[in-house]
Amino acid sequence: MNILVCIKRVPVTGGRIVLRDDEQAIETRHLGFAISPHEECGVEEAVRLVEQNGGESTVLTLGPPEAEEQIRDAMAVGINRGILLETSEEWDAQATAAAIVAAVEEERAAGTEYDLIFFGNESADTGNYQVGIRVAHALGRPCVTGLKKIELVGGRARCEQEIDDQRDVYDVALPAVVTVKEGLNLPRYPSVPGRLRAKKKPIDRKTPNPRPAALERVRLKLPPGEDKPTEILGHGPEAAPAVVELLRQIGVI
């Protein structure tokens, strides 16, 4: 079975987001980057499914050349191959989906047909909630979103989606597109040999065709902060009576 996992490189922003002076992006000069958590679970699930069923897993990302780091991270936990669609700036969801569809069609022309394509339910940074669904439509495949569980039985996928305190079940035929959420599984840590093997795995670099943004970013801004000072209730165990007094004042005891 062939599985494709589409991932996004996102900055690890810590306690405070700082914007670049041009307000077009987050200032990332002092930040690390990671695979966003939903997609990290997509990577783990793809590796497990290939371990169980045989086949090959490929990871794809559209992003800057440095996104090779996240492709290698995915390879370190067992993904076989990488595709990097290199861009210099953030693309809107339609342009991203079109580039992914073109890459999947090139793969098909070269003899690789994906039984399953994983996406994150929404990207951590832009939160557009749509790339996976757009790709599914363009490829004429069913799409199930927000998965917390997937089981493959006889050419079909039984998918569970969390809704309030319950789970909704979907049953779709493969090939399919699925979008997943953190909690689907507990991703493994890469091993040292895994990291070494990752360095030798193949990455296909391509330059996708840009198209003008139809959802056009003008500027980013921070939400109005309340900026009220933090009230220190005390230090150490001696603060306990002050905490209980607060709980009493707000009526929870």
Binding site: T230, E231, G234, P237, A239, V243
Partner: peptide, 23 residues
């Protein structure tokens, strides 16, 4: 950290049992 309204500075393993005892 702008989002915290109140804070107790201390080790949670000492502060929380003291709050529970007080309750």
């Amino acid at each position: 950290t702008a989002d915290f309204d109140y804070a107790v500075i201390g080790d949670l393993h000492q502060v929380l049992p003291a709050i529970s005892a007080e309750l």
